[in-house]
Amino acid sequence: MSWDKTLLKQAGEIIELYPQKRSALGPLLHLAQSKDGYISDDSISVISELLGITEVQVKSVSTFYSMYKQEPTGKYLISVCKSISCEINNSTEVIDKVQEFTGLNNNETDEDGLFSFEAVECIGACGGAPAMQVNYETVEGINAENVFSLCSWLKESAPEVIVADEMQENFGGIKSFDWAIQDNTGATSTAPGFQTLKTSKVKK
């Protein structure tokens, strides 16, 4: 097995939470994603052994969900919403801009492993349309201009932790609702599921 002790211990704790082992499959896939930035065949083998199911059963589940990536993702996964509220508020312009900046088509990752881009379905930020996420941290009220600045900032300052408040303040616009509560907790990888498992990082 090629998961290290810490990861295996964490996996064990997750499995404990559920009345039936197999329920841990989703969270373990998030864990795998946090390790490699995608669901590697190796992780699939590890998980299949941990849960006592076949590898293809793991694969079957992991490919059903769009957040488990089958290919390595970049450091920053940019997901721009294209569902109805965003669509009618010109999300296509935002999408075009990101594509122009990164040179990426939908569901592609650049060669440096910096950016991955995807146009996604509703991310629950319709009031702040158009909206997007970077590593699943939301920015609302963006437009073609400020998304360009956002991408440039990501590229230039390469932050280790992506904090929604920070992005919103510097690049966002109208919001779905008043966020009020100050929050410095953010994402360190493309696996948000990993972070709820008590290992979230705080930006100093």
């Binding site: 199911i53 076949t54 293809v56 059963q57 694969k59 079957s60 490919t63 059903f64």
Partner: peptide, 10 residues
Amino acid sequence: GDPLIEFIQR
């Protein structure tokens, strides 16, 4: 009892 063939993707 040997689920080696499955649906992939959705």
